[in-house]
Measured scan of single mutants.
Amino acid sequence: SEEELIEKAEKLRKEFEFIWNGIRFIIRENADEIRRFEELLKE
């Protein structure tokens, strides 16, 4: 039914948001290391 689809979509959206926030947190935490690594690659 349509309601089930909406519920599934909402659940997926929440899971995606949770994963995305996790990725963003990891990137933020490691931003300095990532930048340093990029500098090494440029040399």
Rank of each mutant, 00 (worst) to 15 (best):
A9V: 11
K11C: 14
W20M: 07
R24Y: 04
F16K: 00
K11L: 08
R28M: 12
A9W: 13
E7P: 06
K14S: 09
R28I: 12
E38H: 12
I19K: 00
E10Q: 05
R36A: 06
N21G: 04
W20A: 01
E39T: 03
R35A: 08
G22Y: 15
S1A: 09
E15M: 15
D32T: 08
I26G: 00
I19W: 03
L5C: 11
E4L: 06
E39L: 04
R35F: 08
E3H: 12
I26H: 01
R28W: 14
E7Q: 07
F18A: 05
S1Y: 10
A31M: 12
E29N: 03
R28C: 15
L40Y: 05
R36N: 03
R13W: 14
N21F: 14
W20C: 14
R24T: 09
F16A: 01
E4C: 15
I6Q: 03
I6K: 07
K42S: 09
R13D: 03
E38S: 10
I27L: 02
I34T: 02
R35Y: 07
K11G: 11
E10Y: 00
I19C: 12
F37A: 01
E33D: 04
E7C: 13
E4G: 12
F25W: 12
E15W: 15
I34K: 02
L40G: 02
E33F: 15
E10T: 02
K8M: 10
E29Q: 08
I6F: 08
N30M: 15
E15C: 15
I34G: 04
I27Y: 02
K11P: 07
A9S: 07
R24W: 13
F18I: 04
K14I: 12
F37V: 05
E15F: 15
G22F: 15
I23N: 02
W20G: 00
E10L: 01
E2K: 12
I26R: 00
E10D: 11
K8S: 03
E17N: 01
E2Y: 11
I27T: 04
F37M: 06
L12W: 12
E3T: 06
I19T: 00
D32S: 07
K42N: 06
K14M: 06
K11F: 06
G22D: 11
E2R: 11
R36S: 06
E2W: 14
R13A: 12
N30V: 15
E29W: 14
L12E: 03
L12R: 04
N21I: 14
G22R: 11
W20Y: 02
G22Q: 13
A9Y: 10
D32F: 10
F16N: 01
E4Y: 03
K11T: 09
F16M: 07
E29I: 14
A9K: 11
I26E: 02
K8Y: 05
E3Q: 06
E39F: 05
L5H: 02
S1T: 03
L5A: 07
I19N: 01
I34Y: 06
W20L: 09
A9E: 09
F37C: 14
E15N: 07
R36Y: 11
L12H: 05
E43K: 07
N21C: 13
R28A: 13
K14L: 09
E38A: 13
I23C: 13
E38K: 07
E10N: 05
K14P: 10
S1P: 09
R36T: 04
E43L: 08
E10I: 09
N21V: 14
L41T: 01
L41A: 02
A31W: 13
R36Q: 05
E43A: 12
A31G: 03
I19M: 04
E10V: 03
N30Y: 15
S1R: 10
L5K: 04
I27G: 02
F25K: 14
E43H: 08
R28S: 13
E4W: 04
I26K: 00
F18D: 02
D32H: 08
L41E: 04
K14Q: 10
E33S: 11
E15Y: 15
I6W: 10
D32R: 11
A31E: 05
R28V: 10
A31I: 13
G22T: 15
E4M: 09
E7K: 04
E29T: 12
K42F: 12
R36D: 04
R35W: 10
R28F: 13
W20K: 00
N21Y: 13
E39M: 01
E39Y: 02
K11S: 07
F18Q: 01
K8F: 10
K14D: 07
E3W: 10
F16R: 00
L41C: 14
F16P: 00
E17L: 06
I27A: 02
E39V: 04
K14W: 14
E38N: 06
R13K: 09
F37P: 02
I27Q: 02
I6N: 04
E7N: 13
R36E: 03
R36W: 13
E33K: 11
K8T: 07
I6G: 03
R13G: 08
A9D: 06
R24I: 14
A9T: 10
W20H: 00
R28Q: 10
R36M: 05
E29Y: 13
N21D: 09
S1F: 06
L5V: 05
R35G: 05
L5N: 06
N30E: 04
A31H: 05
I34D: 02
I6C: 14
S1N: 10
R24F: 12
L41Y: 04
W20E: 00
D32W: 03
I27D: 06
G22S: 13
F25D: 14
E7I: 11
K42H: 12
E2M: 11
I23M: 01
E38C: 15
E10C: 14
R35S: 04
E7V: 09
E17R: 02
E39C: 13
F16S: 00
N21E: 09
E7D: 10
F16T: 00
E7H: 06
L40V: 03
I6H: 12
I23P: 03
I27M: 06
F18L: 07
E2H: 09
I26D: 01
I19F: 12
E33T: 12
F18N: 05
L12D: 06
E7R: 10
E39G: 01
F25S: 13
F25L: 13
E15H: 13
A9C: 15
I26M: 01
E29H: 06
I26V: 03
W20I: 11
K8A: 10
K11D: 05
E38F: 14
L12I: 11
W20R: 00
E4T: 08
E2N: 07
L12F: 02
E39A: 05
E2L: 11
K14T: 11
E3V: 06
E17S: 03
I27V: 03
K11E: 07
L5G: 04
A31Y: 12
R28H: 11
I19Y: 05
E17P: 00
R35H: 04
E7A: 12
E29G: 15
R35C: 14
I23Y: 00
G22L: 15
I27S: 06
L41Q: 01
L41G: 01
K11N: 07
R13L: 13
R13S: 10
F18K: 04
I6E: 08
R24Q: 09
K14N: 10
R35I: 08
K8R: 06
K14E: 05
N21P: 03
W20N: 00
L41S: 01
E39N: 02
R28E: 12
I34V: 01
L41V: 05
F16W: 12
E2F: 11
L41R: 01
R35E: 04
F25C: 15
E29A: 14
R36K: 08
E2I: 13
E3A: 09
E29D: 05
D32P: 07
K8D: 09
L40W: 10
F37E: 01
L5W: 13
E29M: 14
I34M: 05
L5E: 05
K42G: 07
A31R: 07
I23A: 00
D32E: 05
K42R: 09
E43P: 07
A9Q: 06
R24H: 05
E3F: 06
D32Q: 08
I19G: 00
E39I: 12
E43S: 06
L41M: 07
I19D: 00
A9G: 03
F18R: 03
R36I: 12
E43D: 09
F25M: 14
L41I: 09
I26L: 07
I6Y: 08
K42V: 03
E3S: 12
E33Y: 13
I27C: 15
R35L: 08
L40A: 02
E17Y: 04
R35Q: 05
K42Y: 13
F37Q: 01
I34F: 04
N21Q: 10
E43N: 12
N30C: 15
K11M: 04
I19Q: 00
E17H: 03
L5S: 06
I27R: 00
I26C: 14
R28D: 13
S1W: 13
E29V: 14
A9M: 13
L12G: 03
G22A: 15
L40H: 04
E4R: 08
R24A: 08
A9F: 08
E10P: 08
L12A: 06
E2G: 11
R13P: 10
F25Y: 02
F16E: 00
E38W: 11
E38R: 09
E3R: 08
K8Q: 10
K11Y: 04
E43Q: 07
F37H: 01
E33Q: 12
N30L: 15
F18G: 02
